[in-house]
Simulated assay, not measured.
Amino acid sequence: MYNSLKKVNRNSIKQEIYDQVKYSLFNNELPLNEFITEVELSNLLDVSRTPVREAMNELVIEQLMVFKPRKGYKVNTFTNHEIDQIFLLRESLEIACVPFLVEVINDKHILDLQTIIEHQSKAAEKNDYYTFMLLDKEFHTYLMEIIEFKLFLKSYNVQHDLSILIGTQGLKSQGRMLEVIEEHNEILKALSTKTIDIIITSMKSHLEKSMRAFKVK
């Protein structure tokens, strides 16, 4: 009797809550200056408060949300000084990969990166900023996947998610998506040369321009 029934994995509920809230964050659907409580979230999602608390705490740890006692959770915002730090961390991780990349990158890797850029172009045509930024993350993380830098990836994913969040908070420079595509193509061209200095120059230029575009004027 009841052989088909299985225990519900609470972690899967937590993950679904985490994914939904993160999606809303990256789509700029949550008001920047308003708090939301565990009770409100559990009612909206029709789940108990425990997995809500667990999911939201993870977002707080990743600095995507902030928590204030008796108020609840709010979307995190960043000063220009903090944006400097986020991009400095990104640069240090990405540049450190370059000597290893030149040893293993091949035509298939280049083709894969080119495909990501093509998908970015389609997202830009539709003005789909969210998809564009996810593809941006895919482009950069793929470079670490090539060299199997799994420990780097864990740290880098957090930094790049912060970049996406910053970009959704009204800091989208006019024409920036097209500039990013051009810069990614320059990185791709540099990677094809397998010359460390050329690759580093193209990566640093791209990150510098992105950092300037994301800063509060």
Rank of each mutant, 00 (worst) to 15 (best):
I86Q: 00
N80T: 07
S155Y: 10
H160E: 15
I105E: 04
S121K: 14
S121C: 09
I146K: 01
H140N: 11
M144G: 13
S92H: 14
R90M: 09
E125S: 12
Y129T: 10
F67C: 01
L153T: 01
Q85R: 03
P69V: 06
L135Y: 12
K154M: 13
D161S: 11
K74G: 01
H109M: 04
V102I: 15
I117Y: 08
I147S: 06
N157P: 07
A96P: 15
T168D: 03
M133R: 13
K122E: 15
K154P: 04
L165Q: 06
D112I: 10
Y129I: 08
Y73A: 00
Q159V: 10
Y156W: 11
L89S: 14
V98T: 05
Q85Y: 01
L153D: 00
K150L: 09
R90W: 01
D136M: 03
I105P: 04
V98E: 00
F87S: 01
R70S: 14
M133V: 04
I146Q: 02
E94Y: 10
I95N: 00
K126W: 05
R70E: 13
K122W: 07
T77C: 02
L113R: 03
K154Q: 15
V102H: 08
I117P: 06
L88S: 12
I86N: 05
V98G: 05
K108E: 13
I164C: 05
Y129L: 08
N80K: 08
C97D: 13
T77G: 01
Q159G: 00
D128M: 08
K68Q: 09
E91A: 11
F78K: 01
E138Q: 13
N80S: 08
Y142N: 00
L135F: 09
D107H: 11
G167L: 10
H119G: 07
I105W: 00
P69A: 07
P99T: 03
D128G: 00
N157Q: 12
L135R: 12
V75C: 03
I117D: 07
E118Y: 13
Y142V: 00
V102K: 09
I147C: 06
Y156E: 08
Y129K: 10
M144A: 04
M144K: 09
N157M: 10
L165K: 01
T79Q: 05
L165W: 05
Q114A: 12
S155T: 12
K108N: 14
G170K: 12
F139W: 05
N80F: 09
F87P: 01
T168A: 03
E118R: 15
E118F: 15
K71Q: 14
A96F: 13
Q114M: 07
L151S: 14
I164Q: 00
P69M: 02
C97N: 12
E103P: 06
A123V: 01
H119K: 15
E82L: 01
F87R: 04
K150F: 13
N157R: 14
V75Y: 02
K71T: 09
